[in-house]
Design a protein around this nucleic acid. Structure first.
Lengths: 138, 138
DNA sequence: TTGATCGTACGATTTTTATCGTACCTTTGA
DNA sequence: TCAAAGGTACGATAAAAATCGTACGATCAA
């Protein structure tokens, strides 16, 4: 069984180190500490117990859930990847772009951070949005 | 051998409190500590000397520049607003969207964070990009 | 059965960020 | 001229985040 801890009305902004761990779990799915630790060490140096402690703390905070039915506990993210990212994106937009997603995108496109294919994909998405919902919010 | 800290030349990721200050300066241009402090206090409580110290530190770090020809020093951002934002955006995209601006935009549009007008503006920008530079980077 | 290995738990400590108290200088106006 | 008001400087401290050392339980192969 997963340990439940579903109380997250108050959401915490993941710290840097936490985000690194979340990233690994998003990419690989539920994993052991050992595995996460190895992944982290491909780009930074940390002691095993540091990773362990970090993940324990995160589980406690409700950022991760864990299956402790085996000795090697398996940790997974507590919330949908998209949900969390969406939240972070929201904060980002609010802080840096006065809440205007358009402003952000414009800078993104303007500074050529998007590749051609990406631009194409974006346009396609725009079209799709356009036709499926003539009446949007706001 | 782990890759040593090589990320970027020397740019520091502004912390939360620092970002608040930058935001004020971006919005109002070069200002005195007093003014910034008052702005900050419209949405959070901080002591005057806290703001002062923070700004001094930021100046020391190179995030702000200051004109001390008057007793009331005037602080301004050391770097273009867009340049800094662009940097932050870049980090954000890299961390959360595997460097794919397209992914970010898609989520942005998908989760309806962009208003109709914004979408329109984005499309216009796309068109402009498209015609002016058939040969893009990357 | 036993010791090497691998796992978790968790208290301390270090490092980084944020905040504040206080000293002391300048300006101003009564 | 002098005290109040408002400015900077800066050391200390608090709070938050990150790291590590060590204890100790389980597993497993010899």
């Amino acid at each position: 069984m997963k340990s439940e801890n579903q109380s997250s009305p108050e959401r915490a902004e993941p710290t840097k180190a936490e985000l690194d761990i979340l990233t690994v779990l998003w990419k690989h799915g539920p994993s052991t500490v050992r595995f996460v630790h190895e992944q982290l060490n491909t780009f930074k140096e940390v002691n095993y117990t540091t990773t362990l402690k970090q993940m324990q703390l995160m589980a406690e905070k409700g950022l991760l859930s864990r299956d402790e039915s085996q000795m090697k506990h398996v940790y997974g993210v507590a919330e949908e990847e998209q949900k969390t990212k969406s939240y972070l994106l929201d904060r980002f937009v609010n802080h840096l772009y006065e809440g205007s997603a358009g402003n952000l995108v414009m800078q993104l496109l303007d500074s050529k951070k998007a590749s051609k294919d990406e631009i194409k994909a974006i346009r396609a998405l725009l079209d799709k949005l356009d036709e499926e919902e003539p009446t949007t919010q706001q």
